[in-house]
Write a protein that binds this DNA or RNA. Sequence first.
DNA 1: TCTGCGTTATGCAGTTATTCCATAACGGAT
DNA 2: ATCCGTTATGGAATAACTGCATAACGCAGA
Lengths: 109, 109
Amino acid sequence: MKIKSKLWIEVDGKPVFGRGRRFLLEAIDKYGSINQAAKEINISYRKAWGYIKAMEERLGFKLIERQTGGRNGGGAIITDDARAFLKKYELLEKGIQELVDERFRDTFR
Amino acid sequence: MKIKSKLWIEVDGKPVFGRGRRFLLEAIDKYGSINQAAKEINISYRKAWGYIKAMEERLGFKLIERQTGGRNGGGAIITDDARAFLKKYELLEKGIQELVDERFRDTFR
DNA sequence: TCTGCGTTATGCAGTTATTCCATAACGGAT
DNA sequence: ATCCGTTATGGAATAACTGCATAACGCAGA
């Protein structure tokens, strides 16, 4: 028996950001590639692409600067807006899971 | 932009209990009927029945004592085990949403 | 005795959401 | 020109969910 928690942000009742998307953005920042990032966090490129598309549509600003073709086939880097948003989310999430786990231990054990 | 949070318990990687199931059990306790309870929380009887079935299978103990037929067509009451479990869950959940909201205001506003 | 009633119990079809496969476009490097 | 690894999408396949339809049950009352 395990406790799970989820935290996400909605716009117009639709999910915009959560843990998965956070990891995706962090991985893109790390690798400079949506493709590599998707591999890192074990989702398909297709899914990662869908995430980004929906996020940008719903948030209303560009998160990822993309380039196709070129030396290494192209790449992607996250925008300053994305980095700022990410930072806020990381702060928001920090400590929540720990609190939940602690609460779970206190009540169910 | 709104923050949302979810809390649930898993057994073998499958969801067993969360806010919806909590409300269902509380409503069954109140009405003595799965059918009435489902109406109260705006889900179909079918869905409520599925919830209960899965919960009992995964938790491994009986949650609801059912009776078909009879004066009022039958009914359902929650077991002592169910009541104890429910109580623990209520305690666990208490305050989490408030904390999350507060955290959201602090970081995103 | 038997018909009606409101409940629990479930199969199954229809719908919606998710995942994944296939393929195009791109542009520098060789 | 061709290759390579990337971004970009449509659409098929799969899974998950929802809800409709219907059976079984047993007491009450005619």
